[in-house]
Write a protein that binds this DNA or RNA. Structure first.
Lengths: 199, 199
DNA sequence: GTCTATACGCCGATAGAC
DNA sequence: GTCTATCGGCGTATAGAC
């Protein structure tokens, strides 16, 4: 019950604190510009030694972090597919999710859209082969079957649609947009959807 | 005349050889994963000391390289604007240029599209404030005046148009496309142009 | 202008006490 | 599980001979 109070705001164990600190620092300064000392300080530990209790080395921190992000994105997409039947609605909600993440968790989106993961995790699969993106391709293919989306190469459809979406989010992350990202969402959706929808 | 022979194939002085080696390595492995030793070997020198005759430090190599790339791109765009009157034609040729560069000088495009320059050159201006991109925005604005392009925020038009173009080129660079980039050029142009053209 | 030799600092990582 | 202490290595950079 004393412990309960702790649970309310933060039941974060050290493991997750490390991950959270690393996420912020990697997004801010990049993987190579953040030392274990930086992560240590941001976590509240005194020395880097504490880190090694939880992760084998710096790379493994990044790996765990990346896996977490992809997992959670994958789960969110599953949820969206479950709640919506029409591919167009599914895609619309995925866009909503990505805009919301850009607003509320820009560090996460930085990881997904701008950080070059393969520079420090050379063994990871290409992003397109990754669970969440495979699912997005499936949505697109379903949209073609149901005649909502033009019948072209799914990868090309992805390219057109998420080209526009991702460029918007990237520019938002870079601070190149005048207004909040969310302000662009409905317009950007329309233009992107228009690039792939039937007729 | 003896010297003339040299001029034909390569009048590259050591300065440029260093830049060329650095370009290749930075594009391949990233800035932080390439040591001065790597650059030294790729240049044909024996030790890193030779490098310091030409550049103050590693960062200055990257800076010179980046400046060169932006300059040459800027000049190419000037040339395109001079040779074509209609903004749509100018934009079409810029797209042609970018596709050609992606095919023939992928390292250069890697630098422009995927490398996070600010991680190692923190004082550079944002890409959008850079000469070639200011000129592209001007083309877009001209297109609006001449009623070829929808009258929206130029930055948004840039976002839509180059969102599609750049995503295509990025995927080509990542090896995610089945065919040569050039094979996609005309289709991608049409979709991108359609996203911003009037009616 | 390129080599030899060498210095220096930082960071990642380990051993072991508490 | 966190701290103290410390090591080893790599990568940047400099001084000076050729």
């Amino acid at each position: 019950m004393d412990q309960e109070k702790e649970n309310n705001k933060k039941k974060l164990d050290t493991q997750d604190e490390i991950l959270l600190a690393a996420l912020k620092l990697f997004a801010e300064k990049g993987y190579f510009n953040t030392s274990l000392t930086d992560i240590t300080e941001a976590t509240g530990l005194k020395t880097t030694s504490g880190i090694y209790q939880h992760y084998k080395n710096k790379q493994m921190i990044a790996k765990a972090l990346y896996a977490n992000i992809l997992d959670s994105l994958s789960i969110s997409i599953d949820d969206i597919r479950r709640r919506n039947k029409k591919p167009s609605e599914q895609l619309r909600e995925v866009v909503g999710l990505l805009f919301r993440l850009t607003q509320e968790a820009p560090d996460v989106m930085e990881f997904l859209l701008v950080i070059k993961v393969h520079e420090f995790l050379p063994d990871e699969k290409p992003l397109l082969d990754t669970a969440p993106f495979v699912k997005i391709i499936k949505i697109i293919q379903a949209g073609m079957k149901s005649d909502e989306i033009r019948n072209i190469d799914p990868v090309q459809a992805y390219m057109y649609f998420f080209g526009i979406i991702n460029q918007t989010l990237r520019m938002a992350l870079a601070g190149s947009l005048a207004k909040d990202v969310e302000a662009y969402q409905s317009q950007v959706w329309m233009v992107a959807w228009n690039a792939i929808c039937k007729k």
